[in-house]
């Protein structure tokens, strides 16, 4: 058990070292010649107009909300999927009802137009 998650921690550390190492190597090798023009953001060569941290479309929030609901649901599906054969018919029906409720929610969001983009 400890060894299992030892590997997870090791790969985390190795991944960080890998990225940091690559960036560090290029730190020593690369030239530095910044200028105000070069350091401005790319906007097809025009002078930048305004910042980009603006309000964005509310649809992204709707998608995120629907996603959270379904993602949590899948979390409940996984333990059931592993042992549903031992759990038998009742558990299967319960899961169908559970999924059915969420599908009803999806249909509601669909009818409300939360899935439309224009």
């Amino acid at each position: 058990m400890i060894a299992d998650y030892g590997y997870v921690g090791l790969f985390l550390v190795f991944g960080i070292i890998f990225v940091a190492g690559a960036l560090a190597v290029s730190w020593f090798l690369r030239p530095r010649a910044p200028s105000p023009e070069k350091n401005s953001c790319y906007e097809c060569g025009e002078v930048i107009k305004g910042g980009s941290w603006i309000q964005f479309n509310v649809r992204y929030y709707l998608i995120a909300l629907i996603f959270v609901v379904f993602d949590v649901e899948i979390l409940f599906l996984i333990p059931w999927a592993v042992i549903f054969r031992e759990l038998g018919f009742v558990a299967f029906v319960e899961m169908v009802v559970f999924i059915g409720v969420l599908i009803a929610g999806l249909v509601y969001a669909w009818k409300k137009g939360a899935l439309e983009w224009q």
């Binding site: 690559a22 190597v25 290029s26 730190w27 090798l29 690369r30 030239p31 530095r32 010649a33 910044p34 105000p36 070069k38 350091n39 401005s40 953001c41 790319y42 910042g51």
Partner: peptide, 12 residues
């Protein structure tokens, strides 16, 4: 080539 490229950090 990418190792030797300048690493530009835009202002802002």
């Amino acid at each position: 080539k990418l190792l030797l490229k300048e690493n530009i950090t835009p202002s802002g």
